[in-house]
C-alpha cells in the first residue's frame, strides 16, 4: 500500500526543490504545501514539527525535518 506523503515547502528553498525532485525520481506521489501562500498550513507545520525550517516531509504522520535522504529512504522503503 502506498504511503501518504506531504511536503511543506517554500518556492525559494533549494532543499525543498531537491526533496521534491527526489520523490519524483522515485515515482512517489506527494502533496506539495506551499507555506509561503498558506499561513494556516505554515502554522500547522510549525506546531507539528516544533520548528520553523523548511522542508518538512510528512510520511504517514511521521515527520522529517530537512532533506534527509536516508530517513526518507527508510520511511518509504526505497
Amino acid at each position: 500500500m502506498s504511503k501518504k506523503v506531504k511536503i511543506y515547502s517554500t518556492p525559494s528553498c533549494s532543499f525543498c526543490h531537491r526533496a521534491k525532485d527526489y520523490l519524483k525520481a522515485n515515482n512517489i506521489d506527494f502533496e506539495d504545501v506551499d507555506v509561503s501562500l498558506d499561513t494556516q498550513k505554515a502554522e500547522e507545520m510549525v506546531k507539528a514539527s516544533g520548528q520553523m525550517g523548511v522542508p518538512v516531509i510528512d510520511i504517514d504522520g511521521q515527520l522529517i525535518v530537512g532533506f534527509d535522504k536516508e530517513k526518507i529512504k527508510a520511511l518509504l522503503g526505497i
Partner: peptide
C-alpha cells in the same frame, strides 16, 4: 530554526 535562521531567502515566508 525556532525563529532564528541563517537563510532569509529560504525561511522568510514563514
Amino acid at each position: 530554526n525556532r525563529g532564528l535562521t541563517y537563510c532569509a531567502t529560504c525561511d522568510g515566508p514563514l
